[in-house]
Amino acid sequence: MPTPLPELCAPLLAAVPAAVNLPWRPFIDPIDVHRAWYLLIVPLALGISIVYKAVRVGDMRQYPRQVAVMTVQIIGAMALLGLASYLLIEHIVPAIFPAR
């Protein structure tokens, strides 16, 4: 199992305590979401849907529903792609090419 990024960085971070203790500055420094990065797909999918449907939808009364549907479609499709990748790498490939 790969070493988590925070553990890999620990020696480096310990060597530069001054930088680690800096206060976070919005829009200048990155946010600390290394453990929950996958949740960022939700606002990403929502943003994509807001812009795309603003261009595509003719009747703006349908707009909120169309945005919601597209957001769910993107998140669902990405989850399915993730599941498919997992099954392929962890189960299907090892079944076809067993380890010696």
Partner: peptide
């Protein structure tokens, strides 16, 4: 430092 360099998934996203 004027800004912290982002790394890993945070930078990618």
């Amino acid at each position: 430092p004027p800004n912290q360099k982002s790394i890993g998934k945070v930078n990618e996203l």
